[in-house]
Design a binder for these strands. Sequence first.
DNA 1: AATAAATCGTGAAATTTGTAACGATTGCAT
DNA 2: ATGCAATCGTTACAAATTTCACGATTTATT
Lengths: 205, 205
Amino acid sequence: MKKISSRTIARALLYLRTLETLIRDGKDTVSSRELARITGLTDVQIRKDISNFGKVGTPGVGYNVAELKKVLEDIVLAKKVIRMALFGAGHLGTAILKYPAFGKQKLRIVAAFDRDKRKIGRTINGVKVYPVEKAPEIIRKNRVDIGIIAVPPESGQKVADLMVLSGLKAIVNFAPVSLNVPGAVSVRDIDLSIEFLSVYCDTQK
Amino acid sequence: MKKISSRTIARALLYLRTLETLIRDGKDTVSSRELARITGLTDVQIRKDISNFGKVGTPGVGYNVAELKKVLEDIVLAKKVIRMALFGAGHLGTAILKYPAFGKQKLRIVAAFDRDKRKIGRTINGVKVYPVEKAPEIIRKNRVDIGIIAVPPESGQKVADLMVLSGLKAIVNFAPVSLNVPGAVSVRDIDLSIEFLSVYCDTQK
DNA sequence: AATAAATCGTGAAATTTGTAACGATTGCAT
DNA sequence: ATGCAATCGTTACAAATTTCACGATTTATT
Ligand SMILES: NC(=O)c1ccc[n+]([C@@H]2O[C@H](COP(=O)([O-])OP(=O)(O)OC[C@H]3O[C@@H](n4cnc5c(N)ncnc54)[C@H](O)[C@@H]3O)[C@@H](O)[C@H]2O)c1
Ligand SMILES: NC(=O)c1ccc[n+]([C@@H]2O[C@H](COP(=O)([O-])OP(=O)(O)OC[C@H]3O[C@@H](n4cnc5c(N)ncnc54)[C@H](O)[C@@H]3O)[C@@H](O)[C@H]2O)c1
C-alpha cells in the first residue's frame, strides 16, 4: 500500500470534521464540489485526496456521507481511543483540560503533570494532576499515545526528554522552543506567536 | 521584488525566535549549520530562506546574530505593534489573554468581545471585555490588525462576518468550523483536535 | 433507448518546494 | 604570502504537491 502524505491526512481529518456536521444536518450524499465550497479547497484536490483511500464515490451522485466518513475514519481507526497526557496545568493547559469536545471524539486526556505543588493533586475536569516524576510510570500504565507540552519554554526540553524516556512517540509542543528528540518521535510545534505573525504577514505582501 | 513564500516566512519567524534566545545567551554569530541543528531543519534550507532577504551572512563566519535579526524583522517591521482583538473570553480565550509573552513581543491584544453578560465589563490581564455589538467601532478605532476566534463553532461564522464587516484582514480561527470569508481576508485555522490526530497519524503509517 | 447533466477517478502537466553541488569569500595557521 | 578549513549564496536538479484535462459512470429526461 502506498504511503499517504501527511498533508493529505491533515485534509482528510478536515473532511471528517465536515462530514460530521453534514450528518448532523441530515445530509445523505455530498459532492466534491460541495465539500470544496465548504472547506475552501478545490474539488479536484478533494477527489484526489479521497482516491487515496479507495473508490468510494459514485459518478453523477457524489459521496455517501456515512460511507465516506467510515472510509476516512480508517486512517485513525486502529485505536478506538487516543490517549493523551498533558504537561503543564497552567493557563493554556487548563483550557485544554476543560475542552469538552475531546471527550466526544476519540481523543482523551488521561493524565496531567505539573511540578507546582499547588497544582499537584487537584482534579481538573476529571483529570488528575500528578507530579512530573510519576510520568514514566503513569504514561506506560495508561498506554498514552500523545504528549502535550504546555510548560514554559525553558522547561520544554526537559519535559520532552521525559516524554521520550516514557516511550511517547508523538508530541504536540505549545512552548516556543525547538525540541531535540530522536527521529522516531513526531513533534508538532504550535507556536501561537508565530501563527499570529504569520497570518499578519499574509495580508502584507 | 520577488514575493516570498508563506512557508519561508513561517520559517523566518522561527529563525527570529531562535535568534532571540541566542542573543540572550550572548552569542554574536551563528552559522546556518548551527541554526539547522537547533531548529531541526537543514542548513541549505536556512541559507536559501535567508538569501531571500539579501546577502547578510559572511562566508567562513556565518551570520551576525543581531544583524540577521534586524533583517528578518523587516518582514514584520512595518508595524511596531500588531494589534489583536479576541472574540470569546472562555477557557481558551482567557488563556490567550493571560499569556504574558505577547506583551514582550510586537503582539498586543487590545480588546476582547463576548456575548455573555457575566463576562462583559470584566478586565482580564488589562484587557477589557466588551459586548460583541461594539466590535466594529472598537476595532476601527484601535486599528486592529488580527481577529482571534475563540467562540464555539456554531458562532464561528457569525463572528467571522462581524470581523469582515469591521474591516479585519487577518483571522486566526480556533473554532472547528470552516469559515466563509472574502478572498482578501487571510484565515489561519488552528483546530487542536486535527493537530492531535494528525501527529498521532504520523507515528502510525 | 438515446441524450444530457452531474460527478468521479486518474494520468499527465504545471507548479511549488526542497536538496545537492560547488564556486567564491573569509579568517586562521603556518 | 600561501594553503586550508569553514561557510555563504546560487544555479541546477529532484521531489512533492497541486492543477488540468478528460474518459467513464450514474441518474434523470424525453
Ligand atoms: N497561554 C497562552 O495562550 C499561550 C500562548 C502561546 C504560547 N503559550 C505557551 O504555552 C506554554 C504554557 O503557557 P501558559 O500560559 O499555560 O503558562 P503557565 O505559566 O500558566 O503554565 C505553565 C505550567 O507549567 C508548569 N511547569 C513549569 N515547569 C514545569 C516542568 N518542568 N514540569 C511540569 N510542569 C511545569 C507550571 O507549574 C505551570 O503550571 C508556554 O510555553 C507558553 O509560552 C501559551
Ligand atoms: N479549550 C480548548 O482547549 C480548545 C481546544 C480546541 C478547540 N477549542 C475551540 O476554541 C473555541 C473556544 O473554546 P473554549 O473552550 O474557550 O470555549 P468556552 O465555551 O469556554 O468559551 C467560549 C466563549 O465564547 C463566548 N461566545 C459564544 N458565542 C459568542 C458570540 N456569538 N460572540 C461572542 N462571544 C461568544 C461564550 O460566552 C464563551 O465565553 C471553541 O470553538 C472550541 O471548539 C478549544
